[in-house]
Nucleic acid binder design. Sequence first.
DNA 1: TCATTAAAGTTAT
DNA 2: ATAACTTTAATGA
Length: 197
Amino acid sequence: MIDEKVLISAGASIKIYNPGEEIFREGDYLLYYYQIIKGEVKLNNYKEDGKEFIQNILTTGQSFGESLLFLNRPCPMNAIALKESSVFLLPKNKFLTTLETSRETNFQIIESIAERLYFEFIMLKNNSSTNPIVRLKGLMDYLKSFQKDKTPFSFQIPFTRQQMANLTGISVETAIRAIKTMEKKRFLKIKDRKVYY
DNA sequence: TCATTAAAGTTAT
DNA sequence: ATAACTTTAATGA
């Protein structure tokens, strides 16, 4: 993420998106750097049969679309607001000149792209398993890796079962059953339908 | 074993 | 009230 002050002085604007509103879509050539101030945004694809695969769910402080600003290529995913979200929009040319003038910003962008790449590797590795528990556990381990508290069941998974299924490429029903099996195996706890890992 | 379909209960808006 | 989410069950690949 880029410091707010830097974004504002570079000429970023703020846009509010409603739940379900599209920010950009697959095939677009992106014109902005996006950074979430508040809210939640998903990056997804729709398969031939219309089923959804969620690439990532992003929240406060996280950016998206960066890597497309270095390439003259069509965007491979859609971005859709899940909640009402306020987002910084920094035009591509201003984004690129900011990177030239600020070494710190440059580093911050490399860091976010590296983190995103790491996430993609983790998800690809786990989602290539045929075992749904491996897929879900891979996702949960990554999410929990950002938490200071490493004790079991201290982290509430911030996703619905539907979202976890769509992030790991399994059906909701399988996700529900796998989560229950994991509860029996004491990998996680369920309280008021929420998953604690 | 898992996806799919259907049906029904639950929660959130 | 209505939509979204969760759960269970039956069936088939």
